[in-house]
Structures are given as C-alpha cells and as structure tokens.
C-alpha cells in the first residue's frame, strides 16, 4: 500500500489520499459518534441516578418485578453476539468471506433472540398492567407489591432505557443484514472491511450499554 499513490483502489473515495486514511477517518468518525451515543444514554442514566438517590426504597421494590434470569440470559446473548461480531471482523481481515457471512448470520440471530426475550418481558409486564405513564394500570396483586405511589417513575425510566436500547438493537440488526448482503457480493476483503469494523464498534457499544443497564435495572435491589 505504501507507494500506491498513483493508483487509487476502487473503494477509496476521491477526497482521501489512500485506503489507510479512509479507514482511520471512518473509525475516528465512528468513535466520535459513539461519544454521542454515550451522552445520549447518559441523560437517561442521569435521570436514573437522580431518582434512585431520591427514592431508593422505590427502586429496590420495583426491581423485584424484573426477571433476573431472563435479564441475565439476555446479557449472555448480547455478549455472545459481540463475540461473533469480533469474529466477523477477524474473518474479514483474513479474507474469509464465508466465515464473515456465518458470523454475521449468528450475530443477527442472537440479536433477534435478544429482541424476542425482550418482547416477552414487555408482554408479561404489560399484561400485569405495569405500563409506562398514562397506561399505568397494575393488577391488584401488583399494586400490593408495589406499594410506592411513585412506582411509575421507575417504570418510566425502565421503559425509556430498555426501549431506546432496543431501538439500537433493531438498527444494529438492520446494519448487520446490510453487511451480510454486501459480504455476499464480495465487497469486503482484508484491504477494505471498514463498514464491518465500524458496525462492529456500534454493536459493541450497544452491548456496553446493556452491560450497565442489566445490573442497574435488574440486580440492584
């Protein structure tokens, strides 16, 4: 690559000098975007911390309504998908298109498993009337357990945090499908795998956020 100044590889856009500059720019750009994401979720975490500091007993009480087991399973599912994304990048770096596609496929599958589990968690809660805001209408047994009149604050935060996170997972699934199709067309190789790399970064961040959401929402009681 070092002396290829005259021949511009096809994947290098016109305003970059070489492939490296393009790759490094894309990665830096993605990291800057991840800074965005962290502060975006940061607002929600901030709300969580403020209300937790005010109403600790509410949070311990309300967290009991969340299922630790399924939360834990989902954590492991997401970690697994992070692993497969890392493997996918490795495959791309080693020119193994087949491995890249398989790893992407597993990642998509795991992400879908995450969403399905999330769906059943939501479904269960909505069934019990533990719904956000004006839809808050818990059954009498739940009301008995959740004696705190401000319980809806906790679930407001819960639904916002997991909802926005779930949205990110969905976006991630979309991106992975896009990568899968492009990989099938043979767009990626060891010289050019930038989209795989930066989608991977995004996906790991989604995982990172969940790594904090899980103990804060499910475990602290």
């Amino acid at each position: 690559m070092a002396n290829h100044s005259a021949t511009h590889p096809a994947h290098v856009q016109h305003h970059f000098v070489d492939s490296d500059q393009q790759f490094e720019s894309a990665k830096l750009g993605m990291w800057v975007f991840l800074v965005n994401e962290i502060l975006f979720f940061g607002g929600l975490f901030c709300a969580y911390i403020v209300f937790r500091a005010w109403y600790p007993e509410l949070f311990t009480q309300a967290a009991l309504e969340l299922n630790k087991l399924w939360g834990g399973v989902n954590t492991i599912v997401l970690i697994g998908s992070s692993l497969t994304v890392a493997m996918a990048i490795r495959s791309a770096q080693k020119n193994q298109t087949k491995g890249l596609r398989i790893n992407l496929l597993i990642t998509i599958a795991l992400a879908c498993v995450f969403m399905v589990i999330k769906y059943f968690e939501y479904e269960h809660k909505l069934h019990l009337g533990i719904a956000p805001g004006s839809f808050w209408n818990p059954t009498p047994e739940i009301l008995h357990e959740l004696s705190d009149p401000r319980a809806n604050i906790f679930f407001g935060i819960y639904y916002m945090m997991t909802g926005v996170h779930g949205l990110h997972v969905l976006v991630g699934i979309g991106l992975m499908i896009w990568l899968y199709i492009r990989a099938g067309k043979g767009h990626f190789n060891s010289e050019y795998y930038t989209p795989v790399e930066i989608t991977g970064l995004y996906w790991h961040l989604v995982d990172l956020i969940w790594i904090f959401l899980f103990p804060l929402l499910y475990l602290i009681e």
Partner: peptide, 25 residues
Amino acid sequence: FMGLYWDSKFNAMLLVGALVFFFLM
C-alpha cells in the same frame, strides 16, 4: 472487542472523555 488496546490512543481518549463528561453531568 473494540480493539482499543491496540488502537490509536486518541480513540480511547474519546471514550474516556465521554465518560468524564457523563460523570460531570
């Protein structure tokens, strides 16, 4: 997974910086 261990230190700084600003907030 994100490769910061081997990557440009500036990218790691971005992550740490984001956390610092979050904690300030």
